[in-house]
């Protein structure tokens, strides 16, 4: 099958993909660029483990074709992680035991980073809404909610 060249920005750096038209963006990021943090849990757009940010919005990497990403600005879990250590949200997820097996975690981290970048002090309802498209089979969500609420509360008290 003929391959197509796609030029895009990934985590702030220019990148090129050479992909079949049928290849998903998630597959291309994983297979072509080695960004294996985006996970494929269902490949039909329900579980959310592959969620990435495309041009500022959360997108299911499994439902978007790589060829659709020409010129796009893509951010993955690798892109929201600091050079070393953990971001504030990541550290809160660890502190509140908001992950167990870690498979859904990159998607959770990405949507929470997106939420907090748009709204540094989200309400509980807004946090719930933000992660409602992400399935986690291990934690029962309580630790994830507690982590995000704690970050929001810290922002509130520091007036971030």
């Amino acid at each position: 099958m003929k391959k197509h060249s796609v030029d895009l920005t990934v985590n702030g750096r220019e990148a090129s993909l050479l992909v079949e038209p049928r290849q998903s963006l998630a597959d291309a990021l994983r297979g072509e660029l080695g960004l294996t943090g985006s996970h494929l849990g269902c490949e039909h757009g329900v579980c959310g483990a592959c969620t990435i940010i495309v041009d500022g919005d959360p997108v299911r990497g499994c439902l978007m074709l790589a060829v659709q990403a020409q010129g796009a600005d893509v951010v993955t879990v690798e892109g929201v992680s600091p050079k070393v250590g953990l971001s504030e949200i990541q550290a809160a997820l660890r502190e509140f035991h908001g992950l167990q097996c870690g498979f859904c975690t990159p998607g959770m981290v990405v949507v929470l980073h997106h939420l907090f970048s748009e709204n540094p002090r989200p309400s509980e309802a807004e946090i719930r809404e933000a992660i409602s498209g992400q399935l986690c089979r291990c934690t029962g969500y309580q630790g994830i909610m507690n982590a995000a609420k704690a970050v929001a509360a810290r922002h509130q008290s520091k007036n971030v």
Binding site: V77, S81, L86, Q90
Partner: peptide
């Protein structure tokens, strides 16, 4: 936790 949170788990 750190490796999973950073997307550095290896599945």
């Amino acid at each position: 936790d750190e490796r999973f949170l950073r997307g550095e788990g290896r599945f």
